[in-house]
Simulated assay, not measured.
Amino acid sequence: MSSRTVDPPIGAGRFGEYGGRFVPESLVPACEDVERAFRDAWGDAGFRAHLDHLLRVYAGRPTPVTPALRLSEELRVTVLLKREDLAHTGSHKINNVLGQALLAQRMGKRRLIAETGAGSHGVATATAGALLGMPTTVFMGERDIERQALNVFRMRTLGAEVVPVSTGSRTLKDACTEALRHWVTAVDDSHYCLGSVMGPHPYPWMVREFQRVIGDEARGQLEMIPDFVVACVGGGSNAAGTFAAFLDTPARLIGVEAEDGAAVTAGSDGILHGFRTRVLQDAEGQIAEAHSIAPGLDYPGVGPEHAWLAGTGQARYVTAGDADVVAAVHRLARAEGIICALESAHAVAWLVNAVATGEIRRGATVLLTLSGRGDKDMATLMEAT
């Protein structure tokens, strides 16, 4: 295994052969402006202090690490839950959004643009927009609007404009495409607040840095290094933020994808939304549709750092199916009184199955990031149960 690192990507935003910046010429200056602004801001103690202050007094950080005592007893392993579901707006998305919104203000931008699948990133962006007085436009696939009606109402209550996307599969992939197209026309006064560790450089690196507060907090809250660190992966921001603090440790890093959206394990190298990564595609290179009961994992690609970590063996990527995910939501709820998001339940489902198959042995310690809460998924769960 190669040495593990959390350094910035090399060259033009490359994690090994993945990453980069594959965008229309009209967007190259915008991406370069974001990169320059982020490098400057991230090295500015005043900017970092302002963000830390908002994360503490507004977003509710630090989030706790909760021992899952009854689930641990059932599984005969020690399960520790990093509770991003307790952050303001109900998920880890607020960490990245507050950072990008402050960066947008620093750049003199007046407006925020975002894409969303599960709605959590859209809600977080609408929240930051309301907090900072920045009009917000969120692109969301029509299919996701139907199954995430609660989060759509939350966004609109916060004053955001929600734009339905009717093309393609009408899910997260298509919302990303439309958001990028719109950014081309509005780049002078608008910042694209991308929601995960994907997109053209510097977004995969920048979002990981805004999200690494998850892993840094967790490592400081633990008395020992866990045997396993587990998180769900769609684009992969909660996993990237968690893994960042444990790359220099012996912990086994496990990213859990949707069974029918497993870009790392079932995809091949390709370019999507401005970056090179592992994507689901056919023999002609046409992007295939992903499926997941969790709309936040319904994406045919993965962040380039995850593709790189998988290729180097620094992290392992596995899958969980819809039926096991629904069962995992109920099991965690009844054991611990915590209803997690369907996205997070992928990690729980893999944990349960890994214990059953002996991959995780009795007595092991597992840190599992609960990236969000399950309020948004109640309608889906009622239909699936």
Rank of each mutant, 00 (worst) to 15 (best):
A68F: 12
A244W: 11
V325D: 03
V57I: 12
R316Y: 08
L368I: 11
A104L: 08
D377F: 12
M155A: 02
V97S: 10
T136F: 01
V207D: 05
L131H: 15
R4D: 10
H88S: 03
A30D: 12
M378D: 01
S292N: 13
T369G: 01
P62I: 02
R4Y: 03
R252P: 01
L102F: 03
L69Q: 15
M1Q: 10
L280A: 13
L367Q: 11
V348K: 08
L158M: 13
A354C: 04
E383S: 15
A320F: 05
V302H: 02
V163C: 09
P164L: 09
A290H: 04
M206L: 14
E17W: 06
S91Y: 04
I94N: 12
M224C: 15
R4S: 14
E305R: 14
G90R: 08
A49C: 02
R110E: 15
V279H: 00
R334Q: 13
G234V: 09
L71Y: 11
A294T: 01
D85A: 06
H92R: 02
H121S: 09
R143Q: 14
F275Q: 03
H121Y: 07
A354G: 03
L112R: 05
G236F: 10
P8A: 11
G90E: 07
T277E: 07
L172G: 09
H191M: 15
R76W: 06
G90H: 09
L381D: 06
G374C: 10
T125E: 03
V355H: 03
T127P: 04
S237M: 08
T312Y: 02
V79M: 08
G321C: 10
V57E: 15
R334C: 09
D269K: 10
T249A: 01
M382N: 12
M382A: 12
V23S: 02
E259K: 14
F275E: 06
I113H: 13
R362D: 13
D144F: 04
A37Y: 04
A335E: 15
I339C: 13
V229T: 03
I293Q: 07
L27Q: 13
I287G: 03
H201P: 00
L51Q: 08
G159A: 04
T5Y: 09
E284I: 01
R56T: 15
G301E: 05
V123M: 02
